[in-house]
């Protein structure tokens, strides 16, 4: 590891599980849950956030000494908004259908608390390279939860993964459906996203007792 020191590795690794942005820091839930009914949308969302957070962290970290602290929130918002516009235009150009499914939630990356949270907590006090690693680490941690939720919701809800019918065909009764298995359409509705995240938190805290909160 010539490129990454031990501290740098920790920067990437920590947010994946022990300091996960969604389940521990409670950041970035807003724009996340509504789009997790399909795995594909979750993956695209994670990549978008990774792009915005990685680059945004670098930009803010480069400007950290010249931003007056009184107007830093507006400056941060403008930086994020610019990056999000890039993401939005790229999605509209290359994945129009998907950008319709994501609808306003691409725009809502701007107010995704994960981004402002990392800017405030990390990029304002650290150099660009470390900020970049921190951004990527947090975005991956965020993406992991999103993809896990998307995986379960698409698998149980419509019996597919990325649109591929992994459990057989529900109409022609092949695969699992031949034994009387039915899709749980409820998983596709938005409330189930919350419950799935709740269960993920439950599993995670059962494994790592140190994370358990007081009531």
């Amino acid at each position: 590891m010539g490129l990454l020191s031990k501290k740098d590795v920790a920067l990437i690794k920590d947010p994946l599980f022990d300091n996960n942005p969604i389940t521990i820091q409670v950041l970035g839930i807003c724009s996340a849950l509504a789009i997790t009914a399909e795995l594909k949308a979750s993956i695209v969302m994670s990549i978008s956030v990774m792009f915005v957070l990685g680059l945004g962290n670098v930009v803010i970290s480069l400007m950290r000494n010249i931003i007056p602290s009184k107007i830093r929130i507006i400056v941060q918002l403008i930086v994020v908004a610019t990056l999000v516009i890039i993401v939005d235009l790229v999605l509209k150009a290359f994945a129009y259908e998907l950008s319709k499914t994501l609808s306003v939630f691409v725009g809502l990356i701007i107010t995704n608390c994960i981004i402002m949270g990392r800017f405030e907590a990390f990029a304002l006090g650290n150099g660009p390279w470390r900020s970049f690693l921190d951004g990527i680490g947090n975005a991956v941690g965020y993406g992991l939860i999103l993809i896990a939720v998307g995986f379960f919701r698409e698998l149980l809800g419509s019996g597919t993964l990325l649109g591929i019918k992994v459990l057989g065909d529900p109409i022609e009764k092949t695969g699992l459906y031949a034994f009387g298995y039915e899709n749980n359409g409820f998983m596709l509705l938005s409330p189930m996203a919350l419950i799935v995240v709740g269960i993920i938190i439950w599993v995670q805290r059962t494994k790592n007792k140190a994370l358990i909160e007081e009531n």
């Binding site: 995240v197 709740g198 938190i201 439950w202 059962t206």
Partner: peptide
């Protein structure tokens, strides 16, 4: 509440149930 669900976990699940109610 089960210890591992305390705080955040149970809030998520309650919100989910409330969302089902609002549906």
């Amino acid at each position: 509440v089960p210890p591992a669900l305390r705080g955040l976990g149970i809030t998520f699940i309650i919100t989910g149930l409330m969302a089902i109610g609002f549906m």
